[in-house]
């Protein structure tokens, strides 16, 4: 299942990079020549505009638009409307409330750390998976996708069972050494990192597969060291894959709720994140505050999606 998804991405990217090469931000002239012989036969003849257009086309179009409008677009718009129904008052209250500001800052810090961890790990493991052979590679590949299908609550439970200071597998030893993980920021970082773990890998692996390693080989044979090769050849080639992965992980990390809720203990001011603040405000009948905080979070999420969609058009001209 995991393989299919990754293959699907790879196929999509392959098509796209040929069609779009000229305008692609990360485009390098040398790459296109290398890829063309592989991809050219796959390309469908460019006559899709000639498709038959009956009334069915318009019916389907209408169904899709209506469905997405009622399920996603309109509700999303209403959050913005509710956040600003009394002008900027609610937003100003939220942004001047010390507890909420603390929560927002903590969220940003946790997200930043977990994105850095996931980016380093993700790029490294992608290189290993694509460029090297080792026993257990298939198993590792399958396991790496797992965090996407595990319930956030189970993630929190899993981390608590291992790292809690009272009865965890490693927790008491770590606590004796002075590290508290659960009910503290490190645990929240772990939880956030866990749930966003596969996102960078899923973006980088198809790109690495697509660019091949001819240029890396050439650089190496001309005497470049491993680090120079990575910095000058590999990194520029996978730059956009990394950027999409980072943007998606960031959006995910900023918005994590369930896993963080389990491991945080929700201590006001010290382990309360923005999403936990939304829940608390809403349950405490501060609906305006909840809507205003949600609006900020939704803004980041929508911005992330727009950034990715602008720089990475999928299968379009």
């Amino acid at each position: 299942m995991a393989d299919e998804t990754i293959d699907g991405h790879a196929a999509g990217n392959g098509d796209l990079s040929l069609v779009k090469t000229g305008h692609e931000p990360g485009h390098e002239p040398g790459r296109e020549r290398l890829r063309e012989p592989d991809d050219a036969p796959k390309r469908a003849p460019a006559r899709r505009a000639a498709a038959r257009r009956g009334p069915l086309t318009y019916v389907l179009r209408l169904i899709v638009i209506a469905y997405l409008f009622f399920l996603i677009a309109w509700p999303l718009y209403l959050v913005g409307q509710n956040a600003f129904k009394d002008g900027f008052g609610a937003m100003r209250d939220v942004l001047t409330d010390a507890d909420t500001v603390d929560a927002l800052l903590l969220t940003v810090q946790i997200a930043a750390i977990s994105v850095v961890l996931n980016t380093v790990f993700g790029v490294g493991i992608s290189l290993l998976l694509v460029r090297y052979d080792f026993p257990g590679k298939r198993v590792l590949n399958a396991l790496l996708d797992m965090p996407l299908s595990v319930s956030p609550i189970v993630v929190g439970l899993a981390l608590t069972l291992v790292y809690n200071g009272r009865s965890g597998w490693f927790g008491p030893a770590l606590e004796d050494a002075g590290f508290q993980i659960i009910f503290a920021v490190p645990g929240m970082v772990l939880a956030t990192t866990f749930i966003a773990l596969p996102l960078v890998i899923r973006e980088v692996v198809p790109v690495l597969e697509e660019v091949g390693d001819d240029q890396e080989q050439a650089a190496r044979s001309l005497g470049a060291g491993a680090f120079t090769t990575f910095r000058r050849i590999t990194l520029p080639a996978i730059k956009w894959g990394v950027v999409y992965g980072v943007v998606l992980s960031l959006a995910r990390a900023l918005g994590e709720f369930g896993a963080v809720k389990v491991v945080s203990g929700n201590v006001l001011g010290s382990t309360r994140t923005a999403t936990l603040a939304v829940e608390e405000k809403y349950l405490n009948f501060d609906k305006d505050g909840a809507y205003a905080t949600s609006f900020l979070l939704a803004l980041v999420a929508v911005a992330a999606v727009i950034v990715v969609s602008i720089f990475k058009p999928k299968g379009k001209r």
């Binding site: 979070l297 999420a301 058009p313």
Partner: peptide, 28 residues
């Protein structure tokens, strides 16, 4: 407007789940 649909489809993936709940609550 097809690009807009592309963005709208990905929103649930990036939107914090607690916000997703609030979003649905505001219409339903």
């Amino acid at each position: 407007g097809q690009r807009v649909i592309e963005v709208v489809i990905d929103v649930p993936f990036a939107l914090p789940t607690i916000v997703a709940g609030l979003v649905l609550l505001s219409l339903y």
